[in-house]
Amino acid sequence: MTQDHPAPASRQLAAHDPVLPFGGPTQPISAPDSGVPYTQVLRGRGFWPVRSWFGLAFALFGYALIVPLVNQGLVWLFWLFQGRPGSYTEYFGRARGYEMPLGLVAGHVALAMLIPISLAMVALWHRRPGSFLGSVQPGMRWRYLLLALPVAALILNVVLWVDAGSVPQFSVPDGWWWWVLAIVVFSPLQAAGEEFFFRGYLLQGIGSLSRHKWVGIVASAFVFAMFHGVQNVWLFVDRFAFGLLAALLVVLTGGLEAAIAAHVANNVFAFGYAVFSGSVASTRAVQSIGPKEALVDVLGFALVALATWWLGRRLKVATTTP
């Protein structure tokens, strides 16, 4: 695939267009400057740092408000449709802990709401086409994503098997197919939601405040790790390293595709193995790991990043805006 640089999604600001620090209806949606990397998409003529600061605050507030509301709303609907089994408080606790497939569905759909939140922030607040959140091309490069997905899945599984010394042993629990259906359908949405938010909007929003790529990479990875709640040092290192590698991959490949593929593969197999070798609830409740587990995870993520970066090079994906 050759490097494709289509025409900008919308006209650039004309010289007579008023430029306001907070945008507004008088400022049209315009394409970013030409030849800039992913972290600089929100910069350009009319850029005000204060807009990025407020945008980041609004986005984080939206995460804290909308995601829990959607989660609780879906769980409440499931509770009603199932005939109100027991108290809602008890039902919600079980659902939130992923003790039932519908709890996983609600949690993952709620996190998928980060996709429209991120797109809305880029288009309505920063006045940039939302397609530049997917990649600098712009838009989602589906061929790259679909090729990167099996590469990530293969590498992560091989690392897991080599570390364990054998292919994991499985047992088949009752109702397993409900779990598998929920994981296969909704875990990719959850992974994509987190990537659009942390490696998409936060990386671009923080990145717009500095011309140094590493500012956005490190800061977005730190926020990503912190948002996973209670965790010991090694689990934080594990998640921070994943955030760093995923953000670096986005910058080097010019889009979210490889990071989404790695995140989808990791989550689908993590929850999938849990169904047949333990419980999804115990996987959901993990708050600590050891240094060896963290090292194995980081090694797997690093190999995935290297392989999908190479794949992007072979496909000649665009790394700067048209």
Rank of each mutant, 00 (worst) to 15 (best):
Q3G: 04
D4V: 14
P6N: 03
A7Y: 08
P8A: 00
A14K: 12
H16K: 10
D17Q: 15
P18G: 08
P18S: 10
P18N: 07
P21T: 07
F22A: 05
T26Y: 02
S30Q: 12
S30N: 11
S34I: 09
G35P: 09
V36S: 08
Y38V: 07
L42E: 08
G44H: 12
R45W: 08
R45G: 12
F47E: 07
W48I: 02
V50A: 15
V50G: 13
S52L: 12
F54Q: 08
G55E: 08
G55S: 11
L56M: 07
A64N: 12
A64K: 09
A64L: 14
P68A: 04
V70H: 04
Q72W: 10
V75G: 03
W76K: 09
L77Q: 07
L77P: 01
F78R: 05
F81I: 07
S87Q: 09
T89H: 05
E90L: 06
G93F: 04
G97Y: 01
Y98K: 02
M100S: 08
L102Y: 03
L104G: 12
V105G: 03
G107F: 12
H108W: 15
L111T: 13
L111E: 07
M113H: 06
L119C: 15
A120W: 15
M121E: 12
W125A: 12
W125S: 11
R127S: 13
R127F: 11
P129T: 14
P129Y: 14
Y144L: 11
L149C: 04
P150V: 01
A152D: 05
A152I: 06
V162A: 14
V162K: 10
P168S: 13
S171W: 09
P173I: 02
W179Q: 12
V180A: 13
V180C: 10
V180M: 15
L181P: 04
V184W: 08
V185Q: 06
V185E: 07
S187L: 13
A192L: 10
E194N: 05
E195T: 07
E195V: 09
L203H: 03
Q204I: 01
G207T: 04
S208N: 03
S208V: 03
S210D: 05
W214R: 02
W214P: 01
G216R: 02
V218H: 01
V218F: 03
V218L: 06
A221E: 01
F222D: 00
F224Y: 05
M226D: 00
F227E: 00
F227K: 00
L235W: 02
F236C: 00
V237L: 14
A241K: 00
A247S: 15
L248K: 03
L248Y: 06
L248M: 10
T253Q: 07
G255E: 07
L256R: 07
E257G: 07
E257I: 08
A258E: 06
I260N: 05
H263K: 02
H263L: 01
N266C: 05
G272M: 14
G272D: 01
V275T: 09
V275N: 11
S277C: 00
S277M: 15
S277F: 00
T283G: 01
T283V: 11
R284C: 06
A285C: 10
I289C: 11
K292D: 14
A294T: 11
D297F: 15
L299D: 00
G300S: 00
A302M: 00
A307F: 11
W309A: 14
L311W: 10
R314I: 14
L315D: 09
L315M: 05
V317N: 13
V317Y: 00
V317T: 15
T319C: 04
